[in-house]
Amino acid sequence: MSDTSLTIDNILVPELTLCRVPASSKKRVLEFIAEQIHQYDNSLSETQIFNNLIARERLGSTGIGQGIAIPHCRLEGLEHVVGVLMTLVESIEFDAIDNQPVDLVFALIVPKEATSEHLELLSQLAEKFNERSFCDQLRDCDSARTLYQRMTASSE
């Protein structure tokens, strides 16, 4: 593991930034995340990612409120953190802490050992998503490219 501090723009790639994804349910969103990660890196198991995300959701929803969810899990054999950013066409039920449906999702898949990086990234995401105007800018994006640029532009 390198000790360079991870930031959102280190882990997010344009290929895993998706705008206005159609999704009918929380389960479907998690399946889609797993599919996208597998397509991006086919050495990673779609099934394992999905199962780990589901297992994490069973511990408590990763819907953090105000229409935002940060599903995350650890993955055996993963060597670097993988992030997936998506806006959804329509808000979906996500069992969020404020019971609001979710339309902004940032998934984080981290190596099994990477505890401190994992927590650091979660806190960076929570901080960013705490700014309503920033979230509105993300929701207003109509292309994945713009979404990626907005998400990575404001990273310090």
Results as ranks from 00 to 15, higher is better:
Q48A: 13
P101F: 06
N130L: 10
T115N: 12
L78G: 00
V84E: 08
S133N: 14
N99I: 00
S91I: 00
F32R: 13
P101D: 04
R28M: 13
T146D: 14
E117N: 14
H80I: 00
V13S: 01
T62F: 03
S24R: 04
P14D: 01
L12E: 11
A96H: 08
S61D: 04
I11P: 02
S25V: 14
A107Y: 03
V21R: 03
I97R: 05
P14H: 03
S24V: 03
E120G: 00
S43L: 09
L138C: 06
I64S: 06
L147I: 01
F106N: 01
T62Q: 01
P111T: 08
F32E: 14
Y148G: 06
V29A: 04
A96K: 09
L104D: 00
S61L: 03
N130P: 01
R132C: 11
Q39P: 00
Q124F: 07
L16T: 13
V13D: 00
R132M: 12
E93V: 11
Q100L: 14
E15R: 05
L44F: 02
R20Y: 03
G83W: 07
V13E: 00
Q149F: 01
T87R: 05
L44P: 03
L53Q: 08
T146V: 09
L59M: 15
F106D: 03
R28K: 12
I33S: 00
V82S: 07
I109R: 08
V82M: 11
R132L: 15
K128D: 10
Q124N: 11
K26S: 04
T87M: 06
A114Y: 06
R56P: 02
T4E: 11
D95W: 10
S43K: 14
L125H: 07
G65M: 12
K112I: 08
Q39Y: 08
H38R: 04
L30I: 02
Q124T: 09
T87I: 05
N99W: 00
P22Y: 05
S116N: 12
Q36W: 01
S143C: 15
I64F: 12
L121T: 05
I49M: 11
M1G: 15
Q66N: 12
I70P: 10
L88D: 01
A55E: 03
P14A: 07
G63P: 02
T146S: 13
E156D: 14
Q48N: 13
E131Y: 15
N10L: 12
Q48D: 14
Q39D: 13
E35R: 14
L147K: 02
V105M: 01
I49R: 07
L121Y: 06
V82K: 12
N130C: 10
N130T: 07
P22T: 09
T47R: 06
T62V: 05
D103I: 05
P101V: 04
Q137G: 08
F50A: 11
V84F: 08
E76F: 10
D103Y: 01
I8S: 09
Q149D: 15
C135H: 03
Q124P: 10
P22L: 06
L44Y: 02
T146E: 13
Q137D: 11
L125R: 07
D95S: 07
A126I: 09
K128Q: 11
D41K: 15
P71S: 02
E31A: 12
Y148E: 03
A23W: 06
P22F: 02
T7Q: 13
M151K: 04
E156A: 13
A107H: 01
V102R: 08
G83E: 13
I11D: 05
V105D: 02
E90Y: 04
Q66L: 10
V105E: 04
I68T: 04
E79A: 13
R150D: 09
